[in-house]
């Protein structure tokens, strides 16, 4: 194990390499370029491949190729670039190719700006590309988690033969924190029997998402859905803080959850029973846990760096058991703890 003070974006790449990722295909875009730059720096030193692709579309298709050959591979981008990758992500899901894609979300729509936002929740969490597919989405909130979830993402991508996404933001990527890096992971038990590696063993294999006959495609979709159902049963991850006696439950992910942790501390100092439920996986979503908490809390306050996207999933989970309020900032404005605390005090005063 080695500890290093490191930026989240760099930790993501180091985690990927420690997990056995040996190719990165990317296209420059702020604020995700550092991921490509770190990959460009490190991949050649560990026998890996880095290619600056001609476009985001090319990059995800290079990932498709490397994944087809059984290699652990990844790409990353930021919102507009991530939009461009969506067709390729759908293909990866349809062809059941394991790969990892990070979206360092910035302000939109359109060119928007390069400041941190969470306005890509819908396009990241709800599939985004065409067709019936789902992807596991991690929302790290520290440099350590940028490393840890990067590593875990590769394992889960392999486990389900499905893309796994990491949704982060400029703050989590730019922030430096100590990260404990483990030793490189051996991945010998990895099943690559399905891949097309250019050898006799895998010569009979086909990577494809084509099922021309409706019944065949439906059968394929059923098979995919069974995987997604399994993910929903086993891959939900969340974190709670001061939640057991909370009357007001804050819900936020990514960098917002860090601010909300400070809010909880300050609210508790004032004697307010405020807790935090932080979804770590945005899909599968911790709906069951939220439903359980709905029986206990008086109000949920969802805080998002968008005009309210995750709040819809919270509302679905709560099913009118408790009021769900939303506090949002967008365009790159990140609310301070004081601001949110003020919002809570306003709520209490009614």
């Amino acid at each position: 194990m080695a500890r290093e003070l490191i930026k989240g974006n760099d930790a993501l790449v180091k985690g990927a390499i420690l997990a056995g990722c040996r190719s990165y295909f990317g296209y420059p875009i702020t604020p995700a370029s550092e991921i490509a730059e770190a990959a460009a720096r490190f991949m050649p030193l560990v026998g890996g491949t880095f290619i600056q692709a001609e476009s985001e579309v090319a990059a995800i298709n290079m990932v498709y190729g490397a994944a087809s050959a059984g290699q652990r591979t990844m790409t990353a981008s930021s919102s507009p670039g991530f939009s461009l990758k969506q067709e390729g992500i759908s293909y990866c899901a349809g062809s059941e190719l394991p790969c990892v894609i990070a979206n360092i979300v910035r302000g939109g729509p359109g060119l928007g700006n390069i400041a941190p936002e969470q306005g890509d929740y819908f396009q990241t969490v709800k599939g985004g590309g065409h067709g019936n597919y789902r992807v596991i989405v991690f929302a790290p909130n520290s440099a350590q988690e940028m490393c840890d979830f990067s590593m875990l993402a590769f394992d889960l991508a392999d486990k389900y033969r499905n893309p796994v996404l990491i949704m982060s933001d400029g703050f989590t990527g730019q922030m430096m924190e100590p990260v404990d890096f483990p030793e490189p992971k051996p991945v010998p038990e990895r099943d690559e029997s399905w891949a097309v590696c250019g050898d006799a063993d895998t010569r009979p294999n086909l990577i494809s998402s084509i099922y021309l006959e409706p019944e065949e495609l439906e059968a394929h979709i059923k098979k995919l859905k069974a995987k997604y159902d399994e993910m929903q049963r086993t891959e939900v991850r969340y974190e709670e803080y001061e939640a057991d006696d909370a009357e007001i439950m804050l819900i936020g992910f990514g960098i917002v959850s860090r601010v909300l942790r400070s809010v909880v501390d300050r609210a508790r100092e004032k004697g307010l029973k405020v807790g935090l439920l932080r979804p770590i996986t945005l899909w599968p979503f911790p709906s069951k846990r939220i439903a359980q908490r709905a029986k206990q809390v008086e109000t949920f306050l969802v805080v998002e760096l968008s005009t309210g996207q995750m709040v819809e999933d919270v509302q679905l989970a709560v099913m009118n058991e408790a009021p769900v309020r939303l506090y949002w900032r967008a365009g790159g404005v990140v609310p301070t703890a004081e601001e949110i605390l003020g919002e809570i005090e306003k709520m209490i005063e009614g």
Partner: peptide, 13 residues
């Protein structure tokens, strides 16, 4: 996208 996919394939294998 065949040339992009072929790039990934050849580099990985």
């Amino acid at each position: 996208r065949a040339p992009a996919v072929a790039t990934g394939l050849k580099r990985a294998s």
